[in-house]
């Protein structure tokens, strides 16, 4: 049986383990958000239109704001907004990769621990950080190469593959590659491997099984759904009310936590799959 963990245990453990991942996203997002809002406040503090940025017309308004600043030869407030969006958010994304690489080791050790046996979370995070980070960097390269190859295939076969099929192929390839990478991360922790490449090779053996492929594809769906829902927040009828503020806050944070949780669930599944991969002579040679 591939997934042996009970749903209840998975739910409780994974929800708890999602907290640090979620908090990391809060901390990392606060910087760009604060700078962007400071910029917006300087150009819209007493403007009646600012509440419209929470409605369906937000992009038209933002375009007018940005274009107006360019027309005027610059605007410090809009400059801050652009810096937040174009510089600080990408930096935060890199920070998130680092944070995830750090936390993943601790999460995997905790998920792979024998029930009833407590493992030290933070030391485990530190122990696995560099190997996990190397895997993330290598994974980034692999994801780009696979994406390029899929794009090549879909463009060559453009006359028979429509945009829907092309997008599905991209998503499938990405889901499988990411699943494989997470399995490698879990194998690394489960087997205490030092070699990232070795972990990837071991994970590849398990990853090619149809059931495993199906699992990764299924696990890719909730994050995609959450991203779509996050990107389409409901309009806020009364932005000047406390309820409007709470609505905006709760919606964003609830979805962010759920997103963090889906990542932990993915790691939990990877940890269970890692246990199911039979050790080989290769494992011994890769151990530290």
């Amino acid at each position: 049986m591939i997934v042996r963990v009970t749903m209840a245990r998975l739910a409780i453990t994974s929800l708890r383990l999602a907290v640090p991942l979620y908090l990391a996203s809060v901390l990392l997002a606060l910087g760009p958000a604060a700078v962007g809002i400071a910029g917006l406040a300087s150009v819209s503090a007493d403007r009646p239109w600012r509440g419209e940025l929470l409605g369906p017309n937000w992009l038209n308004l933002l375009m007018e704001l940005m274009a107006g600043a360019i027309y005027a030869g610059g605007s410090p407030g809009v400059g801050l907004m652009m810096m937040a969006g174009l510089v600080l958010v990408p930096l935060a994304m890199i920070g998130q990769v680092i944070a995830y690489s750090f936390l993943a080791g601790g999460i995997l050790e905790r998920l792979g621990a024998t029930p009833g046996v407590q493992t030290a979370f933070w030391p485990a995070c530190r122990r696995w950080f560099w190997r996990s980070f190397r895997l993330s960097v290598l994974g980034g390269v692999i994801v780009m190469v696979v994406g390029f190859l899929v794009a090549l295939v879909t463009s060559v076969a453009g006359s028979i593959i429509g945009p829907d099929q092309s997008a599905i192929l991209h998503l499938l390839a990405q889901a499988i590659v990411l699943g494989w990478l997470e399995l490698a991360r879990a194998v690394m922790v489960e087997r205490s491997l030092r070699s990232v490449g070795g972990a990837l090779r071991i994970a590849a053996r398990a990853a090619v099984r149809p059931m495993v492929l199906a699992v990764w594809v299924l696990l890719a769906l909730p994050p995609v759904g959450l991203l779509l829902v996050s990107a389409m927040p409901p309009s806020i009828a009364d932005p000047s009310s406390v309820s409007g503020l709470l609505q905006a806050l709760m919606y964003g944070q609830m979805l962010a936590f759920l997103s963090a949780w889906t990542k932990v669930v993915r790691l939990a599944v990877a940890a269970q799959l890692a246990l199911s991969v039979r050790p080989t002579s290769l494992d011994v040679s890769l151990k530290h």
Binding site: S25, P32, A33, G51, L181, P233, I236, A248, G252
Partner: peptide, 26 residues
């Protein structure tokens, strides 16, 4: 009122978090 800007800040924070957590490797 400061509330509209606060609500925008809350939304922007959530959107940035969604972008961070949607990252393939993070």
């Amino acid at each position: 009122s400061p509330l509209p800007l606060a609500a925008i800040a809350a939304r922007v924070l959530g959107l940035i978090q969604a972008a961070l957590l949607a990252g393939m490797l993070g």
